[in-house]
């Protein structure tokens, strides 16, 4: 098992004929992901990377049974692409695009929820269930299948941790990059809940950053609901506070959001917090092997 994507994933690529879309579609096909369709308005009837291209998501879903969409269109057009995907009945949408205005994301976030769909991202690397499906832009070959679930706000930092897990011979069930934007769809708690329910996942690595209160809330969730071991890492411990969020940000979060507060919250929830990315992988490996 794994979470969110696997060998039954039928992937649709929105923005398949763009530079990023084409490159990563090739990579995902090469990894073995079932890419069944692409969408670029005005390019319907053509083929890209060996998959049929459609003008609309509704048409692509109707003809190919796509059940997951990944979005590569430029930021200003991405909110529209997300809404088109959920209107066409896609239950899980992964938005890689960055530079989306926060106001747009607020509206889209609630709309996706009302439609009963799930959004991952935006501004995220996607996700991978090693050996089954890669729906994202990460390098596939650093991952191996196995029992550790990884959830992270950061892209390359996740590769760092995953490569050390793989180096220890410890594989991953699913690696989910939730993205670092202020407003994102799927959060830490959503993914932790799925890992807890997934029989193949035996331990979880959670990688956070300074800012916001998502890690603190995730720590509360771990304390109340997780039976599986969780290992944590927080980036930004040495970032000077005066460079962080201003006035109202501090008022709204009431002093939480610092690395210290996140680490303290995680430790209080029984999470092993590592000082270095490699140590996070070693702690997780130890939990699996013990």
């Amino acid at each position: 098992m794994s979470i969110l994507v696997d060998e039954n994933t039928r992937l649709l690529v929105q923005g398949i004929t763009g530079r990023e879309g084409t490159f990563h579609t090739e990579q995902m096909v090469h990894y073995g992901t079932q890419v069944v369709a692409g969408v670029t308005p005005g390019r319907g009837g053509q083929e890209a990377c060996g998959v049929p291209v459609f003008n609309t998501v509704a048409q692509a879903v109707g003809e190919t049974g796509a059940n997951v969409s990944i979005i590569f269109v430029p930021g200003p057009f991405a909110p529209d692409a997300i809404i088109e995907a959920v209107d066409a009945g896609i239950p899980f949408v992964v938005c890689i695009s960055e530079h989306i205005p926060v106001q747009d994301m607020l509206r889209v976030h609630h709309y996706v929820n009302i439609k009963g769909a799930r959004l991952q991202g935006p501004n995220c690397p996607g996700l991978i269930s090693p050996g089954k499906a890669k729906v994202g832009i990460m390098a596939g070959d650093i991952h191996i299948p196995g029992p550790v679930g990884v959830v992270s706000r950061s892209g390359t930092l996740t590769y760092e941790v995953v490569s050390h897990l793989t180096g220890q011979g410890v594989g991953q069930s699913t690696v989910v990059g939730i993205g670092g934007d202020p407003v994102i769809g799927t959060g830490f708690i959503d993914v932790l809940r799925m890992f807890e329910a997934d029989p193949e996942t035996e331990a979880v690595v959670m990688i956070g950053e300074i800012g916001g209160t998502d890690e603190e809330e995730a720590a509360n969730f771990v304390k109340a609901h997780m039976t599986k071991p969780v290992v944590g890492f927080i980036a930004g411990r040495t970032a000077p506070p005066e460079k962080r969020m201003g006035h109202a940000g501090a008022i709204v979060s009431g002093g939480v959001g610092t690395a210290e507060s996140k680490i303290a919250a995680l430790q209080a929830a029984g999470v092993d917090v590592a000082d270095f990315p490699r140590e996070a992988a070693l702690l997780a490996a130890k939990r699996i092997l013990s």
Binding site: S154, T156, E160, E209, I210, G236, R237, A239, D275
Partner: peptide
């Protein structure tokens, strides 16, 4: 880019890894 007052210049890809690199240098 954010300027700080140390002596070791850092060039990193990815914000999370960039922060973790600063942390590792400091540690």
């Amino acid at each position: 880019f954010v300027k700080l007052d140390g002596t070791i210049g850092c060039v990193v890809n990815g914000a999370g890894l960039a922060m973790a690199t600063m942390d590792t240098i400091k540690l």
